[in-house]
């Protein structure tokens, strides 16, 4: 089928490997990927930081760019949640029923939802010979409710040793602007997350949100912990020894 990729602005600028991985994964599974070039940002950062007016502007823009896109797939769980649930709140705060209607008309899937629910696959033919821990990020698990879809996909990856992350459900402390507005608390939270990640002995930590991974990965890197972070899409796209 034909899929419109919403790559998310942070991934576009900072983690293009994730978008490339989604593209190669979906093409490997026999689907056509298009990239609507007008896309920028869904407005989530503005919305959660209190800039409602600006967020609504970006949401209107997003609904315009993707109006005729059909099935939309994004590797960012938090952006998927923003479009699927926050847009309604944005529209109501802005008293903009057109935006609410336009948002309701969008068919947005987070990548693992699309793979498991729409395509019905859990074994995507990936090979990734590493010890991997999965962090269920808050928006993936609580706002979207992806449940065990990511774990089912990971369990089907050849060579992958999936280890359980202790206290996995606890927030890593990123929280968008929280990471700088309340940097001290944010760091105190990621310190515990880092401890749990290291306790697993994993060499790769994966998740469905690169922003959370930038936060956890940034702390792991600062501590020279020898654990790297990777978006789940990059693991699923991998077919060899490298990646």
């Amino acid at each position: 089928m034909r899929v419109a990729l919403f790559v998310a602005c942070v991934d576009d600028a900072m983690f293009p490997g994730t978008g490339r991985a989604v593209t190669s994964l979906l093409e490997r599974l026999g689907h056509e990927v298009v990239f609507p070039a007008g896309q920028t940002c869904c407005g989530q950062l503005h919305w959660t930081t209190g800039y409602r007016r600006e967020a609504a502007g970006l949401a209107r823009r997003f609904t315009g760019v993707f109006a005729d896109a059909g099935t939309i797939v994004t590797p960012s769980a938090s952006c998927a949640a923003a479009v699927r649930s926050s847009y309604r709140s944005m529209a109501r705060a802005a008293d903009d029923p057109d935006l609410e209607r336009a948002a309701a008309g969008l068919e947005v899937y987070e990548l693992t939802e699309f793979l498991v629910d729409v395509l019905g696959v859990t074994d995507v033919g990936a090979r990734f010979p590493h010890r991997v821990a999965y962090q269920p990020t808050c928006h993936a698990s609580r706002a979207l409710g992806v449940g065990d879809r990511p774990l089912r996909l990971l369990r089907a990856v050849k060579g992958l040793d999936l280890v359980e992350l202790p206290a996995a459900g606890e927030c890593c402390g990123f929280g968008g602007a929280f990471a700088v507005k309340n940097a001290d608390v944010s760091v105190a939270m990621v310190a515990d997350k880092v401890r749990h990640v290291r306790d697993t002995g994993a060499d790769v930590l994966c998740a469905l949100d690169n922003a959370c991974l930038a936060h956890i990965g940034g702390a792991l890197s600062r501590l020279r912990a020898g654990v790297r972070v990777a978006h789940l899409a990059e693991i699923l796209a991998s077919t060899g020894e490298g990646a």
Partner: peptide, 23 residues
């Protein structure tokens, strides 16, 4: 303000090519 990020966290250097340029 971004110094509050790097107080305790590194930031991965951005890549030379963004996704849309690659695309």
């Amino acid at each position: 303000l971004l110094g509050r990020w790097t107080e305790a966290r590194d930031l991965a250097a951005p890549p030379a090519e963004s996704f849309r340029v690659w695309w």
